[in-house]
């Protein structure tokens, strides 16, 4: 088990945005969390990436209780690819290699290999901010994967991207999960993407985890009527 969380609650200015009784994440699985905007999906990822401390409740990471200050060696096992890729004012290669530089790991052929896998080699020396949205997101994915995280958190990584970029990003995530056993937690509006990638899928509504099941059950025979409605594409709040 990578994460075990209990009575996890998070509030901003007194308003509760996340309130999950229990969430366990298995090592090496791809877990998708779907739900409408404002459901608390991104907040949950920030807590799991130790970017924020929950208002109350507990998070165990690999059996270790996470409180206040999180040791660097644990923080460096988890990384997030956000919906909007935040790139540095530098070349594509420098951006992709940035996580390794932070860790003081010497750059070797791995950078070029990763650039090649995501079709970025032709742009390697180009300033990152001159790329298209899809290319920028591929840079962000390459940068995250190059640090070989144990847990990869994906916050709407392919929202607003064209099918070519979506396919390329999904393929490398699938491959990394299969080859290295990376645990992936994917937050998405796109139920089709959840179905394509995840072994388990959960529905978050108004900060609460309505249902979490293996992906086939979630989509084919959901237990909760709200899940059934969401899967059918109906408006659910």
């Amino acid at each position: 088990m990578v994460y075990q969380s209990e009575r996890l609650r998070h509030a901003y200015a007194g308003r509760t945005v996340l309130d999950i009784a229990r969430l366990d994440v298995n090592a090496g699985e791809v877990l998708a969390l779907v739900g409408p905007s404002g459901a608390g999906k991104s907040t949950l990822l920030r807590l799991l990436n130790f970017l924020e401390t929950p208002t109350s409740g507990t998070i165990l990471y690999q059996g270790r209780l996470i409180t206040g200050h999180v040791p660097l060696e644990i923080r460096r096992q988890v990384t997030t690819v956000f919906q909007r890729p935040a790139l540095r004012r530098a070349t594509v290669r420098e951006n992709v290699a940035y996580g390794l530089r932070l860790r003081g790991i010497p750059l070797d052929g791995a950078v070029d290999e990763m650039l090649g896998r995501l079709g970025l080699l032709p742009f390697a020396r180009q300033p990152a901010h001159t790329l298209s949205g899809g290319e920028m997101q591929r840079v962000a994915v390459a940068r995250a994967l190059l640090v070989r995280p144990r847990v990869l958190l994906l916050d709407e990584p392919t929202a607003n991207l064209d099918p070519y970029n979506v396919g390329m990003i999904e393929e490398i995530i699938r491959a990394d999960n299969a080859e290295r056993g990376t645990t992936v937690i994917l937050v998405t509006h796109n139920v089709f993407q959840a179905r394509r990638l995840a072994q388990r899928t959960g529905l978050l509504l108004s900060g609460k985890l309505v249902e979490l099941a293996d992906t086939a059950t979630f989509f084919n025979s959901p237990a909760d009527p709200r899940t059934a409605a969401f899967v059918r594409g109906e408006m659910v709040y």
């Binding site: 990436n49 970017l51 660097l72 923080r75 460096r76 988890v78 990384t79 997030t80 956000f82 909007r84 935040a86 790139l87 540095r88 004012r89 940035y98 996580g99 932070l102 860790r103 962000a140 940068r143 995250a144 640090v147």
Partner: peptide, 24 residues
């Protein structure tokens, strides 16, 4: 501000985070 969060998410120390922002 998103860059700062991203840098932290990539495992930057506080000093590395400050340096990254200053470099930008």
């Amino acid at each position: 501000p998103a860059l700062r969060v991203q840098v932290r998410s990539l495992g930057a120390t506080r000093v590395q985070e400050a340096w990254a922002v200053l470099a930008e």
